[in-house]
Design a protein around this nucleic acid. Structure first.
Length: 377
RNA sequence: GCUUCCGUGGCUUAGUCUGGCUAGAGCGGGUGGCUGUUAUCUCUUAUGAGAAAGAGACCACCAGGUCCCCGGUUCGAAUCCGGGCGGAAGCG
């Protein structure tokens, strides 16, 4: 088994995800590294921050530099020089990217190649081949993710398609894998914002097996895509009883620190989101005293670091005044520094969550932190 | 002392010649947003929608004004006229 459950605090779990690159303590957060690097931040920072795990995008990487090239270069981790474990997202999410998405069909999703004028159809089978070539430690099933606000009929269709594709993915994945040192594969639950669909999807993905093998982890997809937070957590509650105890549970696309604590309390182990990095690029900083808006004029002459309790290299070396200046002149280095801090914060934040689970004091931590987060600094 | 030029939100300014929508913009300020990233987009080709290409790019909202002052002309003045005040340059 790829997941060890070590201790619990209510439904919150402290555990260990074992990939071929090493052990990942859960719950954990993955910085997004779409094309083998972030936007204005890269692997060097992720290594310095000591992120346990990052997520890359197999669709974009397959277009450039191509799965085969990455394979020839010794696989993703070696190619990009990352010290931890890696995931690749399948590309299903890019169906909601207006610039890339062309159309969906029963067989797969048609994408525009942003580098050329060409178009590609990605099938679940191809996605597995691509992700196998790229060779991240964990691959994701190729799913059909509808946008927020579609009809029940649309959600049902997407769910059915996701299930059909999940089985193709699982079968193909098993066929491609060597016996030793294998890549993990996570399945994805869909079903939109309808209880019956979500329950059905959770059961189908959890129970799906090919040659006595199921998914190594179970992801909940299609959330945090614009719906109100209470609606999102309603879905989480519907799905919760059907999540497996013995496998890693991944909440795709989350998110804000407060949302992450809540999701951890509801049993999730794994998170990824662009929120910390995009917020940082937009001047919104995460601190132990709350959400800090660096763009405010009151920080123009502030000599203190973003967070006096933070040990990251940005807080050790730079004042708010300087960081605000870099924001104001829209400097790329400023973007890197701000993102570095937010990702470092989130790494420490997840460590605190793990500690609190072990101490069974997660509730207390949630109350304290959420109260601080509400007011903008 | 004389001549010329200038005076519009905190800053930089458009508008003044040729009087006429609610004095417009950028920066700065405030509030909010962002959740599996080709930037949650925008504009142009251009026309209802869509597709495509190209260019650019965090987004939205809000608050800041005695248009230096006083008077005149006029239905109407930031704008024209006169007189002040303040600043800059040149000549004594």
């Amino acid at each position: 088994m790829s997941f060890d459950l070590l201790s619990t605090d209510g439904d919150a779990r402290y555990g260990m995800l074992k990939t071929r690159s090493g052990k990942v303590k859960t719950p954990f957060f993955m910085p997004v590294c779409t094309r083998g690097t972030g936007k204005f931040i890269g692997i060097d920072d992720y290594n310095k921050i000591k992120s346990q795990c990052i997520i890359n995008n197999s669709l974009l990487l397959s277009l450039r530099p191509g799965g085969k090239l990455i394979k020839e270069m010794g696989g993703l981790n070696k190619f990009i020089g990352f010290n931890g474990s890696t995931f690749t997202d399948s590309g299903g999410f890019q169906a909601s990217s207006p610039g890339l998405f062309v159309m969906k069909s029963k067989r797969g999703i048609h994408f525009r190649d942003p580098f050329t004028t060409g178009k590609h159809m990605i099938t679940p089978k191809q996605s597995m081949k691509i992700q196998h070539d790229i060779g991240a430690d964990v691959a994701m099933a190729f799913d059909d993710m509808p946008n927020y606000g579609e009809t029940q009929k649309d959600y049902a269709l997407s769910m059915e398609r996701t299930h059909a594709w999940a089985e193709i993915c699982l079968r193909e994945h098993i066929a491609l894998q060597e016996k030793k040192n294998r890549q993990l594969l996570f399945g994805i639950i869909q079903g939109g914002f309808y209880q019956r669909l979500r329950e059905q999807s959770a059961q189908v993905i959890r129970d799906m097996e090919v040659d006595d093998r199921g998914f190594d982890g179970i992801a909940t997809g299609g959330l945090a895509i614009g719906e109100p937070t209470d609606e999102m957590f309603k879905v989480v509650d519907w799905v919760r009883p059907y999540l497996p105890e013995d496998r890693c549970r991944y909440f795709m696309g989350l998110g804000t620190p407060v949302d992450i604590i809540e999701a951890v309390k509801k049993g999730y182990d794994c998170f990824d989101s662009i929120y910390p990095t995009r917020s940082a690029r937009h001047g919104n900083m995460f601190t132990w005293k709350g959400f800090l808006d660096l763009t405010r004029g009151k920080y123009a002459k502030d000599e203190t670091p973003l967070d006096p309790d933070c040990q990251c290299e940005v807080c050790r070396n730079h004042s708010k005044a300087y960081l605000r200046h870099l924001f104001k002149i829209d400097d790329p280095e400023g973007k890197r520094l701000r993102q570095h801090h937010n990702l470092y914060f989130l790494k420490e934040f997840m460590e605190e969550i793990r500690k609190r689970i072990k101490e069974c004091s997660l509730d207390k931590f949630q109350k304290e932190f959420s109260a601080l987060w509400k007011k903008k600094l």
